[in-house]
């Protein structure tokens, strides 16, 4: 069917419309981030569960302690791929909107970015010859939290700011009040605020999709011929 071009008239934008376009761009950027909320929620929820379980159930001296952690981290990529693909398929099946965020380009790249952020402070502490392993392992997690906070402030997303602040506060409190706390337990706890941020994003996305559906249904009912 040929597209209806009846209302596609050419018209230069007014100053107000230019501002409206800018606002729409910002809204689209926020929505693109929110569309990935389900992926963030699933991956961080998975990591929290895996690390809290390993921390609580596996003795750190057991031979399978490290392999279990490595398998847990590798499983993250599987969860990411399955959830993302399934979300896209479901949206297409139901005729719902779908979008991919511009920056950072993909979720794995984001994860590698965070890994580098973790390794940076670790290398710095090693270079400074800080012998305390407690600090070497846990301080970089706090740096990750601060990075998430800074990113949230840059993009003006309160859930990222809150999650980042919670992670940084958690690490500080753990170092001050519970210095012997196992790393796996701390890491598992640190994933919880990130999972909650994903939940907030997903709720935002669902709310917008519902609003669009209601609007579409309303306009379709308005166009329907009267009996």
């Amino acid at each position: 069917m040929a597209p209806n071009t009846q209302d596609a008239t050419e018209r230069a934008p007014t100053r107000g419309e230019a501002l409206e376009a800018r606002t729409a761009g910002r809204k689209a950027e926020h929505l693109a981030d929110a569309a990935d909320g389900i992926v963030l929620l699933s991956v961080m929820g998975y990591l929290a569960a895996v690390f809290l379980l390993i921390g609580a159930l596996v003795d750190a001296s057991a031979w399978y302690y490290m392999p279990a952690k490595i398998v847990g981290l590798l499983g993250m990529m599987l969860v990411f791929g399955v959830v993302r693909d399934e979300a896209r398929r479901k949206r297409a099946r139901l005729g719902l909107p779908d979008v991919r965020p511009k920056e950072p380009p993909t979720f794995p790249v984001r994860m590698y970015g965070y890994a580098l952020l973790y390794l940076g402070p670790l290398a710095l502490l090693a270079a400074l010859d800080v012998g305390n392993w407690e600090l070497r392992i846990k301080v970089p997690v706090g740096v990750l939290g601060l990075a998430a906070l800074a990113r949230g402030a840059w993009y003006r997303r309160w859930e990222d700011i809150a999650a980042g602040a919670a992670i940084a506060a958690l690490v500080t409190l753990a170092l001050l009040l519970a210095p012997g706390l196992a790393f796996t337990l701390l890491f598992g706890c640190a994933c919880v605020p990130a999972a909650l941020a994903g939940l907030v994003k997903h709720a935002r996305w669902r709310r917008w999709v519902r609003a669009v559906q209601t609007e579409t249904a309303g306009s379709a009912a308005g166009e329907a011929p009267q009996p």
Binding site: A24, A28, G95, P97, D98, R100, P101
Partner: peptide, 15 residues
């Protein structure tokens, strides 16, 4: 303006 802020967007999202 909308497309500039996304990697990809489908028709329904643009709508």
């Amino acid at each position: 303006s909308v497309l500039a802020e996304c990697e990809t967007a489908d028709f329904n999202f643009l709508l």
